[in-house]
Structure formats: structure tokens, C-alpha cells
């Protein structure tokens, strides 16, 4: 038995007043509050279908795109950047029509992009790529260079770089010129612990004023974001602030209960099912229960503990990791 249930009356995404409130809070540098927006994005390739309406990424915010593999996260970004054939309506980048933005070198100077699986020519070396970046943008932020320790790579041939070193170079190319809009695809992939912390610090503090849109698969990446776009089942399930999605999906507390007596366990399961504090309830196996809930789950669990002798018991606050885990599984409201 492996069932789970989400008990909530909330609708997907932010309600209109909440959205309005968020727009007012978000810092704006021009009249256009969105860094990227589209009335409609529709992509179809073979059996794959992806469609999203009224999508926008707010300026000055760091937005994480999360979701299961193959859900369309990269498709969404690639469609907006013109790398994929897509039907776009009223697509804009930094207030300029997307097609015009991507055709104009003046506008592209305002953009920084890091993509997955990018390989420059094996016969090139790092110095040449850095020279090209300098010639293109005319500036390279020393803080970014320091955080990514780019000087140690400068003299190396490109083919000698490890996966992590290539990732550092790609991040430098995307961030060093302080673009108005940065698009990152899994920025921490391949980085070791020390560099994950450095880049996280860089994004959270030194580059806090940039608009960053990033595809996330790790909690460290998610931690640097304020907003979330949850891509699932060929569309967008949620867009809005990260905390709201966490509250909606996994609430404030999580409990894990293990009991040998399966009848007793089922009784507890039905009891928790009836609790208004329960948001998401599942039985990973015949003698386990996992439950996410609101603040009131604390009281409900306390009542249960008094009556039952559990074989194993865990209780604590929920984390973004839990939310990311659920979103990556493609779990939806039941």
C-alpha cells in the first residue's frame, strides 16, 4: 500500500490579490515589472506537449524553475530564448519583444546565460574564452572572478578542465558582466561543496540585485531563490513566492511514524486523514506513515503519541528539500 493524499482548499498558484501584492513589493527599475513574460508558450515535438499561459518572471527576483525530469523546464527556457521552435504570444524579454531582443546585439548585452552540456572546442583554451568575453562586454566583475577562482583556470587548455571547472567557467561567462537578466540551468551541477557555498553566497548577496531565472534540482540552488515556477505535466502548476508553495505542499511540520501493528497503523492513518491539520498523508510501506501538515499538526501528533508506542518516530519542521522532493516527483494536489 502506497497511497497519499493532500487535503487543501487552496487553488494552484497565487490568488490575484496575492499576485498584485507581490508585484508591488518587487523592485522595479523600469515601467515593465517583468524580466521575462509571455501570454502563451506552446511547444510540441513528437509526443511531447508543453503549454503555459500568462507566465512572467519578476524583475529583481531570483526565480527557481523546479519540476520532475522531462516536465519541460529546459523547454520553457529554450522556447523563451529562441532555441526551440515554439508558438509564442506576446513574449517579452526585459520589456522588449522576445524576437527583437534576441536579434539585437545591443539587447543581448543585457543577458547572461549558462546552459547544461555546453562544450567549447577542445582545441581552445580558457584564456581565449575569457578574452572573448572581455571583448564582448567590456567588463568582468572581480568579485565573480574571485568567487569562481577563475584565474586558476586561465592558463589551462579547455580539454583539460574537469566537469566542475567547466561549470565555473560557464557561470563566469554568464555572470561576470552583471547582466540585467541571468538564465542559469542547474548552476551548481558538478561543483564541489566549497564552490557551491561560494556561488550560493555570490547569488544571494553580491548579485542580489540581478534578475535570475534558474532551473533547480538541488536544495542549495533553491535556497538562493525567492520565487518558484513549478513545471509539471506539460504546463506550469504554480508560480509565486517560494514560501507559499512550501506551505501549500508540505506545510510547517512533518512526521514519520513506524509501527509493527498494521491494524493500529491503519487506524492512525484514518485518524490523521480526518485531521484538518493534515496536508499530505502517505504510507510508504505497510508499517510506515509519512504526514505533512500545518502548525496544528504538532497538537494532533502529540495527542497520538500519548496513546501509541511507536517503533520509530520522527517529528520536525519541514524544509524546502521536502517541497523540492515532492515537486520533482510531480506530485499534485489530491
Amino acid at each position: 500500500m502506497n497511497s497519499q493524499i493532500l487535503l487543501t482548499g487552496e487553488k494552484h498558484g497565487l490568488s490575484e490579490p496575492a499576485l498584485h501584492r507581490e508585484m508591488q513589493l518587487a523592485p522595479t527599475r523600469t515601467d515593465e515589472p517583468y524580466a521575462m513574460a509571455a501570454k502563451l508558450i506552446r511547444v510540441s515535438a513528437g509526443d511531447f506537449r508543453f503549454e503555459v499561459r500568462d507566465l512572467h518572471f519578476q524583475r529583481g527576483r531570483h526565480t527557481a524553475i523546479i519540476g520532475p525530469n522531462g516536465a519541460g523546464k529546459t523547454t520553457l527556457i529554450e522556447a523563451l530564448l529562441g532555441f526551440r521552435q515554439a508558438h509564442l504570444e506576446e513574449a517579452q524579454i526585459l520589456g522588449v519583444a522576445a524576437a527583437r531582443f534576441l536579434q539585437s546585439t545591443r539587447h543581448r548585452k543585457r543577458l547572461g546565460v549558462q546552459l547544461q552540456r555546453v562544450e567549447y572546442e577542445d582545441s581552445s583554451n580558457v584564456r581565449e574564452i575569457l578574452d572573448l568575453h572581455q571583448a564582448l562586454y567590456g567588463k568582468q566583475d572581480s568579485q565573480v572572478a574571485q568567487a569562481l577562482d577563475i584565474e586558476t583556470l586561465r592558463k589551462l587548455p579547455y580539454r583539460a578542465l574537469s566537469r566542475g571547472q567547466k561549470q565555473r567557467l560557464d557561470l563566469f561567462v554568464a555572470l561576470a558582466h552583471h547582466p540585467e537578466l541571468v538564465v542559469l540551468d542547474e548552476p551548481f551541477t558538478g561543483l564541489d561543496r566549497a564552490y557551491i557555498e561560494r556561488v550560493a553566497h555570490l547569488l544571494r548577496y553580491d548579485l542580489a540585485d540581478l534578475t535570475i531565472i534558474m532551473i533547480c534540482h538541488s536544495v542549495e540552488e533553491l535556497d538562493t531563490a525567492s520565487d518558484v515556477v513549478w513545471v509539471c505535466k506539460g504546463g506550469v502548476e504554480y508560480r509565486g513566492d517560494k514560501e507559499s508553495l512550501k506551505n501549500r505542499l508540505v506545510g510547517a511540520f512533518h512526521a514519520y511514524l513506524q509501527l509493527d501493528d498494521s491494524d493500529h497503523l491503519k487506524a492512525i492513518y484514518h485518524q490523521l486523514e480526518r485531521e484538518s491539520a493534515t496536508l499530505r498523508l502517505s504510507m510508504p510501506s505497510n508499517n510506515e506513515i509519512s504526514v505533512y501538515g500545518t502548525q496544528e499538526l504538532d497538537q494532533s501528533i502529540r495527542r497520538l503519541i500519548g496513546n501509541v508506542a511507536f517503533q520509530h518516530f520522527e517529528f520536525g519542521p519541514t524544509h524546502y528539500r521536502d517541497m523540492l522532493h515532492l515537486c520533482a516527483q510531480g506530485e499534485q494536489d489530491a
Binding site: L81, T105, R108, K109, L115, R117, V118, E119, E121, L132
Partner: peptide, 21 residues
């Protein structure tokens, strides 16, 4: 083959985002 290699390895996508005509 040089152009195809850059395209296959996604480097052309990065060049497309660079401000280079």
C-alpha cells in the same frame, strides 16, 4: 564539421546569446 561540433555541444547556443552578430 567545426560548426556542427559547436552546435552539437550547445556552444552555438551560448554564441547566440553573446552580443555578436
Amino acid at each position: 564539421l567545426s560548426i556542427a561540433s559547436l552546435r552539437e555541444h550547445n556552444a552555438l547556443k551560448i554564441y547566440a546569446c553573446f552580443p555578436v552578430p
